[in-house]
């Protein structure tokens, strides 16, 4: 369970794979060369229009200069003239290159605020929404891009599964970048291969299995992956056609309560993640309480807010309200 955290703590290089190198080259070869030459564990790269690029190394922000120096991001380094920056036009051209000059193919993802590239890396996109008939038609004037580098840690879920067991469903709660998706991915692989059980993965945003051109970028074992499907449709289809023992799902919200109850009716165990930073905020959030009250989850796992992949506590449902 601590594998992700231990890996990052030791400062082991999370190497930039060819897919990320291609993404970085879309911005600038010089910028790509600087990051390639470093052996730091980079987890995120934030690029904002005409602002210094910020690189997150072990969750700490750094700026990058034209000479290739990587400096801690603070009020002094952020105002330097030699920081690498990209204009709005350069960001737009880079996004076009990342989408292989086929924006129409990626438009629905762009409208949802991200593009997933080969390798499972997610590029968050932020700009000016063009609204038509009450829905986002496209994003113009892209002002910010966040490149989240995805990593796979085989076996990182073993310790968690020892604490939760495999006989029932559970929720994994944590803040963004706490390691929820990485854990879900490994849980799917472990359950489908080592138990072995029938596992369906509902990968609405394409981050768990990161299927690209029909192939999973990550090892999801023998899971059946519903990539890009809306959650409720995928859950119903999975139960009707794949007869899963487990359904794995990322980022549940209050709107998914009905779907979660549906799995209960068919004896399918649900393992899912949720954005929630603590037990107290879980108990004070109605959406979370509604999900918990479905009784589909026997345990809730809370991840550490500061260290990626570190377990903070496992709470059994019957003990939830006692806390």
């Amino acid at each position: 369970m601590h594998m992700i955290y231990q890996y990052l703590k030791k400062g082991r290089a999370l190497l930039l794979d060819n897919n990320i190198i291609r993404v970085l080259n879309s911005f600038s070869e010089h910028f790509c060369k600087i990051l390639k030459s470093r052996s730091d564990p980079i987890s995120e790269i934030r690029i904002r229009s005409n602002k210094p690029v910020v690189v997150y190394i072990s969750c700490i922000p750094y700026t990058v200069t034209q000479e290739g120096d990587v400096l801690p991001a603070d009020k002094h380094s952020l105002i330097r003239n030699d920081c690498i920056t990209f204009s709005s036009r350069e960001i737009k051209n880079a996004v076009a290159r990342i989408c292989e000059y086929s924006i129409y193919k990626y438009q629905s993802d762009i409208n949802n605020g991200f593009v997933t590239v080969c390798g499972g890396h997610r590029i968050g996109i932020c700009g000016t929404a063009v609204i038509n008939d009450g829905r986002i038609k496209t994003i113009s004037d892209i002002s910010s891009v966040n490149i989240r580098i995805a990593h796979e840690f085989i076996g990182c879920s073993r310790e968690l599964l020892k604490k939760t067991g495999v006989k029932s469903g559970f929720l994994i709660c944590g803040v963004p970048s706490s390691g929820k998706t990485t854990l879900l991915r490994d849980i799917g692989r472990t359950l489908s291969v080592e138990v072995p059980a029938k596992v369906s993965i509902v990968d609405e945003r394409g981050e768990i299995a990161a299927r690209f051109a029909g192939e999973s970028s990550f090892d999801t074992g023998l899971c059946d992956v519903y990539s890009g499907y809306p959650k409720n449709k995928a859950i119903i289809d999975a139960i009707r056609t794949m007869s899963p023992d487990y359904i794995i799902c990322d980022e549940l919200t209050g709107d998914d309560v009905q779907s979660v109850r549906y799995t209960l009716n068919y004896g399918v165990k649900m393992i899912a993640s949720l954005h929630c930073d603590s037990l107290e905020s879980a108990l004070s959030n109605n959406a979370v309480k509604n999900l918990i009250n479905t009784k589909a989850f026997e345990k809730i796992v809370f991840l550490d807010n500061h260290y990626t992949g570190k377990l903070r506590q496992v709470v059994a449902m019957e003990d939830m309200y006692a806390h």
Binding site: A96, C99, Y101, S102, I103, Y104, Q107, K137, T138
Partner: peptide, 10 residues
């Protein structure tokens, strides 16, 4: 201009 916008615009 091909490929530079959403499906409807294309």
């Amino acid at each position: 201009q091909l490929g530079s916008s959403d499906r409807e615009s294309q």
